[in-house]
Design a protein around this nucleic acid. Structure first.
Lengths: 195, 195
DNA sequence: CTTTTGTTTAACATTTTTGTCAAACCAGAA
DNA sequence: TTCTGGTTTGACAAAAATGTTAAACAAAAG
């Protein structure tokens, strides 16, 4: 069997991801995706069979990408504080590319009702919570429910990029200025988390 | 002229808001909205002329509601710290009811390209930034670009409610437990902001 | 009771979006 | 070159969503 692989399938998928995750066009039609990719709309069906199938695939890959990113950070053997610094750097860079990825995941979840994660995933989160708890016990972090710590961290990283269009208007900033502000945030968040 | 007002127009609008802001069904069809409201779909056209008109109206009202909420908090004459405590309380209560309102606003902005705010709105934000700057100058707040302060505050309040479906799975919590966690957050956020 | 007028409904029409299929196309194999 | 099989395209079909209209309905006014 000859597999030619002109890259079209990947192109379509990447374009869809760009529209969903980067531009926040959470409801793009197959026509819009095909146009943006510069290919015939029929190819969406040829490669993915249906619009829903494409959405599902993108959804699952988004989930995997996100989890892989976090795993790489959390599985590293750095000391805790460095781990967090690294997380902030990696995550914000990623979130500047794909600010709406988590929102896409959430809206897909809301649309299809719930979803389940592998037991291993939940346990991994538990280990991270444990790690944070340990830091709190030895006094290097302010004591609180470690979940709040995680939530604070991810909120401060992710939300300002989701709300960028609104914020940059209200703060009267250009896109470039706002981007610079997001770079500044890396240090600010670190200092807010480790006072 | 007799105005009968059976409340249907308001019912449709409220139902739409509930689907958009509370359930996160950002792409609900007119049929889905009508069904949820228990009315004939044609009434959407009767009262709002078109789907887009309904979306526009809901969008603008959402914007106004949000701005009014913030104005009430910020225009009050409390001392700064109390103002913030009040903001956290009011905003989180509101965000628990309508977690996706800001996301709806953002996605509508992304869909229709930009949007403009009244000059008065920008100036009001500037006054708040000034107020924060003053607090930093007299040492009651850690010095930083006051925009980060605002961003941190709103991120920690809003984002965990947007990501609730995902978080409650990853943290292995029931809805009730997660809600309780959000109540706890009011104090946590206050302490994180005022270390 | 009858009329008036705003409200609601069902049937129909239009538009938008998605899906299918056969033919054309094109690069590598024979 | 011809054959082969994956790829691309345009025309068409089907489905989904939105919009329109006329008639039925119901409450207040006369």
């Amino acid at each position: 069997m000859t597999v030619r692989d002109t890259g079209t399938e990947q192109l379509i998928k990447n374009t869809a991801k760009h529209m969903f995750f980067a531009e926040g066009k959470l409801h793009a039609t197959t026509q819009e995706i095909a146009d943006a990719a510069g290919v015939n709309r029929t190819l969406v069906n040829y490669y993915f069979r249906s619009r829903d199938a494409l959405f599902d695939q993108v959804f699952h890959e988004a989930q995997r990408e996100l989890m892989t990113l976090l795993d790489e950070v959390f599985d590293s053997k750095m000391p805790f504080k460095e781990k967090i610094r690294n997380l902030i750097d990696v995550f914000i860079e990623e979130a500047m590319k794909y600010p709406y990825r988590e929102v896409f995941i959430i809206t897909q979840m809301n649309r299809n009702d719930v979803m389940e994660f592998k037991r291993a995933r939940i346990e991994k989160v538990n280990r991270i919570l444990q790690e944070i708890q340990t830091e709190m016990d030895n006094g290097s972090l302010k004591a609180m429910n470690p979940r709040h710590y995680i939530i604070n961290l991810f909120s401060m990283m992710a939300y300002p990029l989701v709300t960028a269009p609104l914020n940059s208007i209200l703060f009267n900033m250009s896109n470039e200025e706002y981007q610079a502000l997001m770079q500044e945030r890396k240090q600010i968040i670190f200092e807010t988390i480790f006072p």
